[in-house]
């Protein structure tokens, strides 16, 4: 009985030992895969950047040699463990804030965020005002002529009454 338990214990220990060894052997390939960032990971950052040489072409789709070098640099930085913000900051430090697809929310760049909505609101305000004014002007001529017709009719009535009174006097 004791021998049987001993055998089972040895078997279990061997199984656990082999499992540990197997898992240890499996780890390095997984780490190696993580060390090489995929194109998607590189492009996720690249699409937020614009190379100054190729205006209006996001870095992730730009076909020039300069842009390819930038993408390689992003891949290298990701492999070194740098964060997205650190990588973007590196490009801003080296090439200026104009490389960012979305300008930073600071200093002079605030105008980019404030001016367009303000202009749209102002335009909407003036359009609504102008629309109301036109509508009022379109209504006024009709109302104005009705009022003048009433006044004219009143004047005619007064005149007729005075005329009749004069005729009565002369009878």
């Amino acid at each position: 009985m004791d021998k049987k338990r001993l055998r089972i214990s040895i078997f279990v220990l061997l199984f656990l030992g082999l499992s540990f060894l197997f898992s240890a052997v499996q780890v390095p390939p997984a780490l190696a895969q993580e060390a090489t960032p995929s194109d998607d990971e590189v492009n996720a950052i690249a699409r937020q950047l614009y190379c100054p040489v190729c205006e209006n072409t996001p870095l992730d789709v730009c076909p020039t040699e300069a842009c390819r070098q930038w993408r390689d640099l992003i891949r290298q930085m990701l492999a070194e463990g740098r964060t997205e913000d650190e990588i973007k900051q590196y490009f801003v430090d080296n090439y200026g804030a104009r490389v960012l697809a979305e300008p930073p929310r600071s200093g002079f760049f605030w105008l980019v965020y404030i001016v367009p909505p303000a202009a749209i609101l102002a335009a909407a305000f003036f359009f609504i005002r102008a629309f109301r004014t036109w509508k009022q002007m379109a209504r006024e001529p009709a109302g104005g002529s009705a009022a003048s017709d009433g006044e004219a009719s009143q004047t005619r009535d007064d005149y007729a009454a005075r005329l009749e009174a004069e005729l009565e006097k002369r009878k």
Binding site: C51, P52, V53, A66, Q69, W70, D72, L73, Y95
Partner: peptide, 8 residues
């Protein structure tokens, strides 16, 4: 060196 990466 204009708009370049340092290794290259």
């Amino acid at each position: 060196d204009y708009v370049d990466t340092e290794p290259q």
